[in-house]
Amino acid sequence: MLFILLGVLVLHLIILILLIVSTAASTWSVGDTGSTDLWYNCKTASDGYHCKPASSDDWIQAVQALMILSVLFCFCSLIAFLYQLFRLVKGGRFFFTAIFQILASVFVMCGAIIYTVMRPDNHTEFGYAYVLAWVAFPLSLISGLIYIVLRKKE
């Protein structure tokens, strides 16, 4: 049982790291002249590398909010798991943790879908931060489902 709990904890930490990196990294779209992320649009010009804030469109603000919410819910889920690990009665399930983790999964999925549909330049390729967000989605969903099935044993 200790190995299962340790494995679930490591999976949760990996998901949290993936979400933080995908939210903060500067490569959601990559083109010939620069990169775009949730926060900045960076271009390479003859006089150097210049970054300006991301557009103030509603869709990019929605993606920003959803990605931040996914990080917060994943972190709250980790705290809830650690709390329930020591306070939950024997035989109890980690429902509270599972709800937070599944919500984090839904938020990251919605954010990535909105970015996919509304990205400003269709001539660019998706960057690694975008891919990390899509990798974090099924992992957090699986983690949430594991928390629903998992029971605390002595």
Rank of each mutant, 00 (worst) to 15 (best):
C51F: 02
F137Q: 09
G144M: 07
W39K: 08
I14C: 04
R119Y: 11
G34W: 05
L5G: 07
L9W: 00
A45E: 11
D47F: 02
K43R: 14
V131I: 12
L72P: 10
Y83T: 13
W39D: 06
Q101C: 12
S77M: 02
Q84F: 13
F73Q: 07
F94W: 08
L16W: 05
F126K: 06
A98E: 02
N41S: 14
M118R: 10
L141H: 08
L141A: 10
L38A: 00
K152A: 00
L18F: 09
L13M: 13
R87A: 10
C76R: 07
R93L: 13
L85G: 03
A112V: 00
E154G: 12
W28H: 06
F100R: 06
K52I: 08
M1N: 09
A129L: 05
T116S: 08
F100Y: 06
L145K: 10
F94K: 02
G31L: 00
I17Y: 09
K43H: 10
T27M: 12
A62E: 00
S26V: 02
L82S: 03
S77E: 10
I114G: 01
T116Q: 11
I14W: 06
F81N: 00
S77Q: 03
D121Q: 11
I68E: 11
F3G: 14
F86K: 14
C76V: 12
G7S: 10
T33G: 10
D57R: 01
I79D: 09
F95C: 10
P138F: 01
K153W: 11
G91S: 00
A24W: 11
L145E: 06
G144P: 01
G127K: 03
F137R: 13
G144W: 01
H50A: 00
K152L: 04
L139S: 07
S56M: 15
I14Y: 10
T33K: 05
A136N: 06
L6G: 05
N122L: 03
W39Q: 08
W134G: 08
F81I: 09
C110W: 00
K152R: 05
Y115M: 11
